[in-house]
Simulated scan of single mutants.
Amino acid sequence: MFSLHPKLIDFDLSRLNSLMDKFDKPQNQLKNVIHIAGTNGKGSTASFLKEILEAHKFTVNVYTSPHLINFNERIRIRNKLISDELLIDILENIEAKNNNKPITFFEITTAAAFIAFQNYSSDFNIIETGLGGRLDATNIIDKKKLCVITKIGFDHTEFLGDEIEKIAFEKSGILREKIPVIIAKQRYNKAMETILNRASSIKAKVIYTEKISDRIKIGLKGKHQYENASTAYTAAKELLPAMCCLKTKDALNKVSWHGRIENIDQGEITKFRKNITILDGSHNQDGAYVLNEYLKQKPLLKWNLIIGMLNNRDIKSFVNTFKQHIHKAFVISIPNVSNSYKPNDMCSRLIGTGIETHPMKSFEEALKYSDRKTPLLITGSLYLAGYVLKINKTGIV
């Protein structure tokens, strides 16, 4: 698939539209599409919403990205990961009909999701954007039941722009005329203003999130997850006028979403640990802010840090956000990811943070030297989170 187009990201919807025409536009035959865009919280919001809908006995298909361990995680059909057999069959069909024409990896995966969801229909289809919104491959869907905009921040600025208004403009490109939109609480006023202006211009009904009580137990850690749960709850209320309060509470508590402030308390890694181990896939400033808020709530001594990041990230600013909680940092290249920072490069970029930093040859070496009795935070990338979960032999279902 990679060989068909040299660029991993290329905003041109004509390729996927042309391919989907050969399959009779499956994306426009899906029932009750909920389209989610935003910088942070898309996957968590989708997971909360999925659980609420399923608690009310509805079937749900979900398309998210990226995957952590197995590609199949991206496409969930009625509460199960797509099978290898079905996925291979769909991909072979796509390959045949595409006839070696240029197409990106994400466009192919999106095509596979649309075809799978058409063949195995559900009551609701939750579709998460990959990057941006206006020109994202998922945005070729014409018929939507509801749009959701999660928190918007600075990420992928080389593609979306380096001003929050530009980023919000791209994200709000998923909105459709007279289709309701749930807007999550925004950190930046200009982001909210941009979304509202877009909604007003196409007469899209704006629904602000209804905050749920922090006394309600939810399945994901961190105060920020109450914002994501509130966004999902508000969406569910719009979709299910007769929503059951008890079923909804149970659903919110049941949610799991790996690699998001995840406590590693079982598996292979625990053999090397005698204190708390937190894994988080954060990789941008808003993610670092969330980590800082979480660490402030933990009455512990300073943490050790294992970090690996893609080389287009500002690692110094990321770590500076929560550096007051960090004792030592062990820096690594993300295994099997060619565009991740090299350890020595990370060390040089972290000069001035005041953190004692050690370059490591591998995650396993970093784990060995990170002191099993000291609290440990592993972060910097969802790709690193996926590798760690694989090493830990964590099953994702």
Rank of each mutant, 00 (worst) to 15 (best):
E107Q: 11
L19S: 03
S121I: 12
A229E: 02
E54N: 03
I269S: 12
I52H: 03
Y387N: 11
H283D: 03
K274C: 08
F58Q: 13
A235S: 14
S340C: 12
D155T: 06
L68C: 06
P299Q: 14
V62D: 10
V33H: 07
I52N: 02
N72H: 15
T157D: 00
N292K: 14
I34C: 10
E95A: 14
L175E: 11
V148K: 13
P299T: 05
I77F: 01
I108V: 15
R78E: 11
E158W: 01
L16W: 00
L146Q: 13
A288L: 06
Y294Q: 04
A251N: 04
Y226F: 15
E365A: 11
T379S: 15
G153P: 04
Q285P: 11
P6G: 02
G132H: 09
H224N: 10
K390F: 09
H283F: 12
L91H: 10
D123I: 09
N99H: 07
L350S: 01
I207S: 00
V60G: 04
D89C: 06
L91F: 13
R372W: 00
V388W: 09
T150K: 06
A137Y: 06
L384H: 13
D265E: 14
I149L: 13
Y341E: 01
I278C: 00
E92I: 00
M309K: 05
